[in-house]
C-alpha cells in the first residue's frame, strides 16, 4: 500500500485488489437478490393489508424496512447521493435531508389522502436518479458553469420519494383505525431499512474508492446510474400513458 498525500487515499496493490472486487460483487449480488419492486406489493403483504384493522406496529415496521430495501429507485438515488461523500458529517447531513424530505411527504401524503398519480411520482423519482448521476459526473458544472445546490436538490427530491412511498401505502386502503400508529411504524421501518442500505452502500463505496482505477469506475458507475434512471422514467411514463 502507498499513500497518496494529496488525496489521503490509499491504493490497493494487486494482492488486495482481487478481494476488493470479490467483496463488491458479492454485495451487489446480495442487493439484486433482494428482488426490487417498483410498484408491486407481494401477495402476502396484500393479504395482510386488506384483512387487517387496528394497530400493528411490528408488521408495518417490517413492511417499511423491506419497502426501502427492495425499492431500487430509492436505493439508486442513495447510491448517487453517497457516491462522493467522504466525510461522516457529510453523509449524516445528506441522509438527514433525504430522510426529512421523504418522511414529511410520506406522512402528509397518507394523512391528507393526497391523490397523487403513482406513475408520475415514480417518474420524477427516476428523474432524481438521472439528476444525481449527471451531477456526480460534474455535468452541471461543465454544461452550465454552476452546480445546483446539492443539499436543496436532495431535500426536494426527497419530498418526491416520500410521495412515492405514500402512494404505495395508499393503494391498499389502510383502515382509519390505527392509521397514525401504523403509518409512523411504517416510516420508522423505512428509516431502519435505509440505515441497513446505507451501511451496505458505504461499505461497497469505500472498497471501490481504494481501487486505483476509481476515477474510471466512477465515470462508468454514474453513467450506468443515469441510464438506470432513464429506464425508470421511461417505464413509469409508459405506465402513466397506458394505465393512468
Amino acid at each position: 500500500m502507498h499513500i497518496d498525500s494529496e488525496r489521503h487515499c490509499r491504493h490497493l496493490d494487486d494482492r488486495h485488489r482481487h478481494w476488493a472486487i470479490a467483496l463488491v460483487t458479492g454485495l451487489l449480488c446480495l442487493a439484486v437478490g433482494l428482488e426490487g419492486h417498483a410498484h408491486g406489493v407481494d401477495d402476502n403483504t396484500r393479504a395482510f393489508l386488506e384483512g387487517s384493522t387496528g394497530v400493528h406496529v411490528g408488521p408495518f415496521l417490517y413492511i417499511g424496512a423491506r419497502h426501502m430495501l427492495t425499492g431500487y429507485d430509492h436505493l439508486l438515488f442513495l447510491v448517487g447521493v453517497l457516491f462522493f461523500l467522504y466525510r461522516a458529517r457529510d453523509v449524516f447531513l445528506y441522509v438527514t435531508l433525504f430522510t426529512v424530505g421523504h418522511s414529511l411527504t410520506l406522512l402528509f401524503g397518507v394523512l391528507a389522502n393526497i391523490g397523487a398519480n403513482a406513475w408520475l411520482i415514480d417518474a420524477i423519482i427516476g428523474l432524481s436518479v438521472v439528476y444525481k448521476g449527471f451531477d456526480n459526473l460534474g455535468g452541471f458544472q461543465r454544461l452550465f458553469g454552476r452546480q445546483p445546490d446539492t443539499r436543496l436538490a436532495v431535500l426536494i427530491f426527497g419530498l418526491f420519494h416520500g410521495f412515492g412511498l405514500a402512494t404505495r401505502l395508499q393503494a391498499f386502503g389502510l383502515p382509519e383505525e390505527g392509521l397514525l400508529s401504523n403509518l409512523i411504524a411504517f416510516n420508522v421501518g423505512v428509516e431502519l431499512g435505509q440505515l441497513a442500505a446505507l451501511t451496505i452502500i458505504l461499505l461497497a463505496l469505500n472498497v471501490l474508492r481504494l481501487l486505483p482505477s476509481f476515477q474510471r469506475i466512477a465515470v462508468v458507475t454514474n453513467t450506468l446510474l443515469m441510464s438506470a434512471g432513464m429506464m425508470l422514467v421511461g417505464y413509469q411514463l409508459t405506465g402513466f400513458f397506458n394505465f393512468a
Partner: peptide
C-alpha cells in the same frame, strides 16, 4: 457544504456528452 465531484479530476465535456449518450 457541497462535496463537489470536482474534488476529483473533472471530466471533460467530450467525456460527459459521450457518457450521457451511452446512458441514453
Amino acid at each position: 457544504m457541497n462535496a463537489s465531484p470536482q474534488d476529483n479530476q473533472p471530466i471533460g465535456i467530450g467525456t460527459l456528452m459521450k457518457a450521457a449518450l451511452i446512458a441514453a
